[in-house]
Amino acid sequence: MKEFDFELIFKLADGKQDSSEYLDALFENGCDDATISAGQLGMISLSFTREALNASEAIESAISDVKKAIPSVKLVEASPDIVSISDISSILGHSRQYTRKLFNSDTTSLPAPIHIGNPSIWHLSEVLNWLKSIGKQESRINENLFELSYITKQINIKRQLEACK
């Protein structure tokens, strides 16, 4: 078994604004390995540390546990996936200056951001693969994170495509 740290954010679709009444249902449906935040009315965030055979199983089972507890929820975002330079720095555990230097060191092979702005954002899995390909930071990157960020990217893209329908 491997351990995966990830987060799922949902919107409560049934118009009920206070999610605190769902806490026991979430706990009893298997989300006792998550920390639940609901500071924003109508939204709920679950920070999981889940043991599973692989990242896909960890995330899919977590989404299914949440939907069992609150059938009307809609997934907003799975993380870690969409990241800025600042997020990447805290994930890899070094300074923003150093990440900027890394990003500037090989701009031709650097993956294109999904949004160019202040800050620009990338898919984490693309950045991790790039760092691996240029031989940087490999030892700092947990193998589970490669797997996890690949799955969260797929889930987020799928969610965005569904929103186009």
């Binding site: 954010i9 006792d32 390995d33 609901a38 500071g39 939204m43 540390t49």
Partner: peptide, 22 residues
């Protein structure tokens, strides 16, 4: 987005250390 400004603390989480870390 203010989402973490109110975070629940379990009485008996599945794994105490992990909950504390989160």
């Amino acid at each position: 987005n203010g989402i973490y400004c109110s975070t629940s603390v379990w009485s008996t989480p599945k794994n105490t250390m992990n909950h504390a870390k989160q």
